[in-house]
């Protein structure tokens, strides 16, 4: 799915502006939510980096395939820079200036290769809305130097024609599934198959990373928990034997008793008077 409300401008070695235009409006950020949960995903093979946020080293020797965070960041604009481990921030290999981080969002910043193999950073807003009871959210992001792909679960395509740098998602039954990635419209397996255990009430985000040309395509996974919902109800009886509260027959009994008392009492009184 095209996240068209992002404008992504980033290129290897170049300083670029990164904005998340309109995200705040789209997610209807509550007034009190002044922070964002930010994770960083490393999807550039063979390139460990140090990560700087606003000139301050935040991640040291961050390895390909690793996921960092979540980090609570106050909403605002951030400068992000990646350097080779140990090198100063002014010799960064990839920088993004003024990345807008809207409050109340959950964002993953993916450092990855674009379709032509150039390193870049793409921000994804993670869908952290609740899933129904019994369900799990599967999100797949194409962040690899590779053509369009299909994602299959149990042999059947679930997402098709996914291209870099876009995502596809669905809420599916929680549990285990065998998944693979094939070149779009073909049976040519590019990644996998792998067994996915989709936890109930969680979002599993799978990033396809690497390069088809370099033959190092693989996946990185990020999990977000706490998205579960309670069941709609707990129906646990239809017999009625355990009913509480006053039943109709009790009112009838009480009414009959009152009538008998009044009627009987009146007769007794009448009889006494007439016997005098």
């Amino acid at each position: 799915m095209q996240r068209s409300y992002f404008r992504r401008v980033a290129a290897g070695g170049a300083v670029a502006a990164l904005t998340l235009v309109g995200v705040g409006a789209l997610t209807a950020t509550p007034a009190y939510a002044a922070t964002a949960e930010v994770s960083v995903v490393h999807g550039i093979p063979d390139t460990p980096v140090d990560v700087y946020v606003n000139g301050e080293k935040t991640l040291d020797n961050f390895a390909p395939g690793d996921v960092a965070g979540p980090l609570s960041l106050a909403e605002g604009a951030y400068d992000i820079a990646l350097t080779k481990p140990g090198e100063p921030v002014d010799s960064a290999i990839l920088t993004v200036d003024d990345a807008e981080v809207p409050g109340g969002t959950n964002i993953s910043l993916a450092a990855h290769l674009d379709a032509s193999g150039q390193p870049k950073i793409t921000p994804f807003v993670n869908d952290t809305s609740k899933v129904d009871a019994g369900k799990s959210r599967l999100i797949v992001r194409h962040t690899a130097a590779a053509p369009a792909v299909d994602v299959r679960a149990g042999g059947a395509p679930v997402f098709t024609e996914l291209t870099n740098p876009n995502e596809a998602k669905a809420d599916v039954d929680a549990g285990g599934v065998s998944a693979d990635v094939v070149l779009a419209g073909t049976e040519t397996v590019a990644i996998g198959p792998a067994d996915l255990d989709l936890g109930e009430g969680t979002a599993t985000i799978v990033y396809a990373i690497g390069s088809a040309e370099a033959n190092n395509l693989e996946v990185v996974a990020q999990t977000i928990t706490g998205l579960h919902s309670a069941p709609a109800g707990v129906p646990s009886g239809n017999g009625g034997q355990a009913a509480t509260g006053t039943n109709t027959w009790l009112y009838l009994l009480a009414g009959a008793g009152a009538l008998l008392l009044v009627g009987g009492g009146a007769r007794v009184a009448t009889a006494r008077r007439s016997n005098r």
Binding site: T244, T246, A254, A256, G257, G263, G264, V268
Partner: peptide
């Protein structure tokens, strides 16, 4: 006739008592 009336009073009291007891117990 008097005995019948007394019996009715007794039955009425019993019915009321049962109704009250069941109501309280099943609250």
């Amino acid at each position: 006739r008097n005995r019948g009336a007394l019996a009715a009073v007794a039955a009425g009291a019993a019915a009321l008592t049962v109704a009250a007891v069941v109501t309280i117990a099943s609250r």
